[in-house]
């Protein structure tokens, strides 16, 4: 048995070589870029690093990024839950079309996305002209940046929830309704607890992407300093001005955000895994209790 398994696996040398190759590839493409960000940011000492972050332009950029994300996130969260509720819970004509359209933003270049918003809301367009006449500017303003952020993060929550809800089925919700619960009671007390981890994961991804979006935001931003510069755009400006410490210092913030995102994602997955393992352990515990219970009854 052991012998057969050994003879069947790759030799030690092959295995070692494959692992080495994979690690080299990952180190080259994942670890080194991370290292460079922090190395460059701190290359002139901690003082300059902190000064770069305390710069008023940098703070404006951070503020705008947080603002855009805090608007885009809840909007796409509500949409994602609604879309998942329709697609995973109902049969209707046009369902696959809806599903395809939700994915559309994934297959469009961010730059093209930005361009579409410029075409829609730019001063030359009828809609843009009308809005401008009513004092509402979309392109080259915060509103445009929010819209671009919403567009690029549009599918994340729905994409996480749809397969999850489909695999769970709707029997628990049906049971809740038979028991007399109202629609909202069913949603809050049965649906939400069942999808909370998927929801959290979708939110994490949306947040990361919204804070880091570059292409689409760059097109609609107009690069007005102190007004329409998000953190990624600020990094570009600093970099093009050869202010490498400043650029990498800001980049290090977003890198930390990315690492936090990965950590949160791993924790979510780990928790889900642990929940099933713990349920298994407690079952064993219950078996023991069942035995004592039976003993007590027969006594």
């Amino acid at each position: 048995m052991v012998e057969r398994q050994l003879s069947n696996r790759e030799g030690r040398a092959t295995r070692g070589l494959l692992i080495l190759l994979a690690i080299l590839f990952l180190a080259l493409f994942l670890l080194l870029p991370l290292y460079v960000v922090f190395q460059q940011a701190l290359s002139q000492g901690l003082g300059l690093y902190l000064a770069a972050l305390a710069d008023s332009d940098a703070r404006d950029a951070i503020r705008l990024t947080l603002l855009a994300t805090s608007v885009a996130l809840p909007l796409n969260l509500v949409f994602g839950v609604c879309a998942a509720w329709c697609i995973a819970r109902f049969e209707f004509r046009g369902k696959s079309l809806l599903s395809t359209l939700i994915d559309l933003p994934f297959s469009v270049s961010p730059v093209v996305a930005g361009l579409m918003y410029v075409l829609l809301f730019g001063v030359h367009s009828p809609l843009g002209g009308w809005l401008e006449a009513h004092g509402l500017k979309v392109v080259f303003s915060t509103a445009g940046i929010v819209l671009a952020s919403v567009f690029v993060t549009f599918p994340f929550v729905a994409r996480e929830l749809i397969p999850l809800m489909q695999s769970q089925g709707s029997e628990e919700e049906q049971a809740a309704l038979v028991l007399g619960a109202s629609g909202w009671q069913t949603f809050w007390r049965v649906t939400v607890p069942n999808i909370k981890w998927g929801l959290l994961y979708g939110v994490i991804l949306t947040n990361a992407r919204a804070m880091g979006e570059f292409g689409a935001v760059s097109v609609v931003s107009g690069h007005i300093r102190g007004e329409t510069i998000t953190l990624p755009l600020h990094i570009e400006i600093l970099y093009n001005e050869y202010n490498f410490v400043g650029a990498f210092a800001c980049a290090s913030l977003l890198t930390l955000l990315a690492l936090l995102t990965l950590l949160a994602k791993t924790l979510v997955e780990w928790r889900q895994h642990r929940a099933t393992v713990r349920a298994g352990e407690q079952t064993l515990d219950l078996r023991a209790r069942a035995l004592t219970h039976l003993n007590r009854e027969s006594a």
Partner: peptide, 8 residues
């Protein structure tokens, strides 16, 4: 329900 549909 056939598969009980208990709230997990």
């Amino acid at each position: 329900f056939q598969h009980y549909a208990l709230f997990r």
